[in-house]
Each structure stands twice: as structure tokens, then as C-alpha cells.
């Protein structure tokens, strides 16, 4: 059992949880994730580790409610326990001194990108962060992202905070209007956002990596449920990823596989909300 040391409700649908997991806290590197299972009948789901405190022995995750399992996590309180947490999983982000690095976060992806931004800054890069969400209430990790970047651009679809528009528009402005030389882009967030970023940077030939969010079960490379095609080859997101060269990812296949359980997910979520 993994105790929740502190749970903060950032928004009705966004929870920040600090969980007691000393072994994971000690080992974890930026970009890695955990697989968690809330209770005995629960699913195993992957969640990126946003932060960790090795001394305290805790890890921090941000969860956005989009279905039953994330709703279950969202409903937990400080002092509750999560049945199972496995990690740290996946390959850590490959941190290098590229020069000017743009970190793009969408929704809770911003929180997940925090440790990565921090590492890139520590490695001597000039870090520009672009973070976006549908509305101001769904923005997370702004304070920390400001700390871990040299420049922070905030976007909201509805203009309730920062610039009105998508993160891709802010990226385009940086490159085409301000003529900033960008050496590397990393995007973490909803799949359509990461796809749009990739499509934008491809003609610019800027190295771009994204953190994929496939459906997973074990998270250790034994089932192939999370398989994607990258550069024409089959890769498992859980052990070969979660980050990949965006320009090589078959987005159509990824989006196709994300839809496999749509009807069961809907059924589960609706039952949960009624109960």
C-alpha cells in the first residue's frame, strides 16, 4: 500500500498527489513514469512522475480526470492509500546541451514537463517554456515552470490568462516573428497537441521529442499493448519510450490504438459517476 501524504485539488478535475514511495523517489529521473492501481478491481494505468523528494521518500503526480480510473485517483484524500505503484518506468529523458530548447506543456503535461525543463536548464540550455490549457483554471505548474525556464509564455484557448490561442501559435511566433533560433523542442500533453507541434517543427527540421501516452497494462514490456510504430519499426512505449522522435511517430496508428476501449471506458465512467 502506498500512502498519500498530501492531496491538493488544483481544479475539480485535476489532482496533485504526493505519495510515499521511497524506492521510486530515490531512483527516479526526469521523464519516467509509474504504473498505479488504486484498488483490487482497478486497472493498471501509467502516470508521469512530476517530482520526487528522495530524502522525504515521496513522488508527486498530477492526474486529470478523464475516465473512471483517473476519477478514482481524483477522489482519493490525504491519508488514503493506493494499492500498487510500480516504478520508475521508461527511459529517462535524454538531457543534453542543445542551445535553445523549447519545452511545451499542454494541460497536466506542463507538470510532467517540469523536471525535464529543470534538467535542461541545469545542463546549460536556454529554456523557453510554452504552456497552454483550455482555460486558466486548467493551467498547472506555472510557478515552478517559471523557475525552471528563462522565459515563460502562457496560452489559453479562451484567453482567460496569457495569450489567447494554442501553444503552436506561440511556437510559430517565436520562430517566424521573433526569429528565435530553436535547437530542440520537447512537447508533453494531449496527443492532438503533440501532433500539431510535430507537424509544425518538421518542415523547420528542428529535433522534436514527445512523451507518448499509450494504453498500458504491465508497463514492463511483456504484453505489447502499448506498441507504436516509430520510424517504421514497432516500439513499446513502456520500455523503449515514453519519449520518441516526434517526426518518426505514426500518429494515425497511435490515435487508432487509443480508441480501442472507448466504449468500455465510457460505460465504466458513466457507471462511476452515477454511483
Amino acid at each position: 500500500m502506498f500512502k498519500i501524504i498530501n492531496k491538493e485539488q488544483l481544479h475539480p478535475s485535476i489532482a496533485k498527489l504526493e505519495i510515499e514511495a521511497p524506492l521510486i523517489a530515490r531512483k527516479r529521473k526526469a521523464g519516467q513514469f509509474v504504473i498505479l492501481r488504486v484498488n483490487d478491481t482497478g486497472e493498471r494505468i501509467p502516470i508521469t512522475i512530476a517530482d520526487s523528494d528522495p530524502e522525504k521518500g515521496t513522488i508527486t503526480i498530477y492526474v486529470q480526470e478523464i475516465g473512471k480510473s483517473s476519477a478514482l485517483v481524483n477522489s482519493l484524500k490525504t491519508g488514503d492509500s493506493i494499492s500498487d505503484v510500480l516504478g520508475p518506468l521508461g527511459r529517462p529523458t535524454h538531457i543534453k546541451k542543445f542551445g535553445t530548447v523549447v519545452i511545451i506543456g499542454g494541460g497536466v503535461g506542463t507538470a510532467e514537463a517540469l523536471p525535464i525543463a529543470q534538467e535542461f536548464k541545469n545542463a546549460g540550455n536556454n529554456v523557453i517554456a510554452i504552456v497552454g490549457a483550455r482555460e486558466a483554471g486548467l493551467l498547472v505548474g506555472l510557478e515552478k515552470m517559471a523557475e525552471y525556464s528563462h522565459r515563460l509564455i502562457v496560452c489559453t484557448d479562451d484567453g482567460s490568462k496569457g495569450v489567447k490561442g494554442f501553444v503552436t501559435e506561440a511556437l510559430r511566433q517565436l520562430k517566424e516573428d521573433e526569429k528565435i533560433h530553436i535547437d530542440y523542442v520537447l512537447a508533453v500533453g494531449p496527443l492532438p497537441m503533440m501532433r500539431a507541434v510535430s507537424n509544425m517543427t518538421k518542415p523547420w527540421s528542428i529535433k522534436t521529442e514527445i512523451s507518448l501516452n499509450s494504453i498500458m497494462i504491465d508497463g514492463t514490456g511483456m504484453c505489447g499493448g502499448c506498441r507504436v510504430t516509430v520510424g517504421g519499426e514497432t516500439r513499446f512505449v513502456c520500455v523503449d519510450g515514453p519519449e520518441f522522435d516526434a517526426h518518426e511517430v505514426d500518429f494515425d496508428l497511435l490515435q487508432q490504438r487509443q480508441r480501442i476501449y472507448l466504449s468500455q471506458e465510457k460505460e465504466s465512467y458513466e457507471s462511476f459517476k452515477k454511483a
Binding site: 486497472e43 497494462i217 504484453c223 506498441r227 496508428l253 487508432q256 480501442i260 465504466s268
Partner: peptide, 30 residues
């Protein structure tokens, strides 16, 4: 082989045996 509905036996059986997907929706894994 990457079409929806094509499983490795490890995934198919792990869902059914370990996660008890045969008892969905009592168990959450589909």
C-alpha cells in the same frame, strides 16, 4: 498486425487472468 483487436497472447491473457477482464465491468480492465 497493429490493427485494433490484434493482441499478443501475453496481453490477452494478462487482461483476462491477472486483471480479471472476463468479469468487466465488475473489474475495471476491459
Amino acid at each position: 498486425e497493429n490493427l485494433n483487436g490484434i493482441y499478443s497472447s501475453n496481453e490477452y491473457l494478462t487482461r483476462s487472468n491477472l486483471m480479471k477482464a472476463y468479469a468487466f465491468p465488475k473489474y475495471d480492465t476491459p
